[in-house]
Computed example of a mutant assay.
Amino acid sequence: MSSKLSKLTNEVSLLSNRLRRNTFMGFVKVVLMALMASVAIYQSYVLFIDGSQDKDKDHIAIIKLAGTIASGQKYGDGLSLSQAFHRATESKGSKAVIIQANSGGGAPVQAEIFNETLTTYLAKENHKPVFFIIEEVCASACMYIAAAITDNNLLAHKNSLVGSIGVKLETFGFVEAMRAVGVERRSYTIGDNKAFLDPFQPEDTIVKDHINNRLLSPLFDEFKSVILAGRGNKLSDDPRVLSGLVWTGSEAIKLGLIDDTTTSFRLRQKLSKQYDTDTFISYNKKASKITDLFKSEFWSDVIIRSASLQHSEAINLKY
């Protein structure tokens, strides 16, 4: 009798545990479903309601240019920036466009895409005013883009970092280190110079000459031509301007790299009063999704601001 009672007690206990587990899992499922539904509703609001209802009303359009200028970057892809700029200028309600720049540079091609977009638009008659305001830094490829700005609207803060007009290609040389530890490098290629950037091979003078004269020099000549065409006779003839050095915003005015200094807040106040609107709408702000939490791009964007103190590294880029 006692064994039957004990067995029955165990079965009741197991059943009770299952019920508790099922109840807990059911609660978790309900919470997750509610969270997903909330995210879906929020996404719908951001994408279809928030902001879009004001785009037909008077406003100032904002284009964010930030981080590394490169294909696929959230705020540095030339095609995406151009598309956002086109939407901003075509909007019936936009009275002016502010490009907020905070970039240490990046890919020449992406800079070329957005520079050409700006240059083409600003060459039109009766175009909307376009202001380019440099925040912490605008170097290399960012300056390539900024050179397109006309009408004395290329601005910076007094403490902004501006310049770094130059081109570089970097690699390493581990030949001596390999000899010291007795390591042999084996690389199988077809094409005499296929592995010309291999850091485990001795430097080749023919390849070095090719890099300097056929890669870096043409890119630098193109860079200089864009800066000279954009800044015109405003640009100082001081040879240091095109030497890769970086300047503060206050110094950049004297050198003709920018037109004036102000702050982002002061610029917004000025345009708000001029166009009688307190509405500022971002045209390339992308709504975040719950799945973005699992993507590296989400976290890289989160740390853009905190990394602003590391500009010495941010400037260390290709263009």
Rank of each mutant, 00 (worst) to 15 (best):
H127T: 14
R185N: 15
K158T: 13
N212G: 01
L155K: 06
G230E: 06
T189K: 08
S236Y: 12
F223V: 05
N152R: 06
V183D: 09
F174S: 11
D238L: 07
F196W: 12
A139V: 06
V162A: 02
P202Y: 06
I149L: 06
S140F: 13
V207L: 03
V175D: 04
A195D: 15
V207S: 00
F172P: 00
L219W: 07
E135Y: 08
G182R: 03
T171R: 02
G191C: 09
I145A: 08
F172I: 01
N193L: 10
V130A: 10
A195V: 00
V175L: 07
K208C: 00
Q201K: 06
N159W: 02
N212T: 10
K194S: 09
Y144W: 13
M178I: 00
V167I: 14
D237F: 08
G173W: 01
I206N: 04
V183K: 13
L228R: 13
S225E: 12
E184Q: 15
H210V: 11
F131C: 11
S236R: 07
Y144K: 09
K194N: 05
R240Y: 02
I190G: 03
V167H: 00
R231I: 12
I227H: 04
R185H: 15
L235H: 03
T205L: 13
F196H: 04
K128H: 05
D151A: 11
N212A: 12
N153F: 00
N193W: 10
D198E: 11
K234S: 11
F223N: 04
E222F: 06
L154N: 04
P202L: 04
L161T: 06
P199M: 14
P199Q: 14
F131L: 08
V130T: 11
D198T: 02
E170N: 13
A229L: 12
D221L: 13
E176R: 13
G191V: 05
K208R: 11
L242F: 06
M143A: 11
K234Q: 11
M178Y: 14
F200N: 14
R185Q: 14
D237V: 07
E135C: 08
V181C: 09
Y144S: 05
D209C: 00
V241A: 04
D221E: 15
V181W: 05
T189A: 08
P218D: 02
E203Y: 11
I211Q: 00
S225D: 14
S160D: 03
A141T: 09
D204A: 08
E222R: 13
A148V: 07
R231P: 03
F196L: 10
K224P: 01
D151K: 12
I145H: 09
V226E: 10
S236C: 12
V181K: 14
L216N: 11
N193G: 01
D237W: 01
V226W: 07
V241H: 01
V183R: 09
D198A: 02
K234Y: 02
A180C: 02
R231D: 07
R185A: 03
G191L: 08
V183H: 10
D204Y: 10
P199V: 11
N213Y: 01
V181N: 11
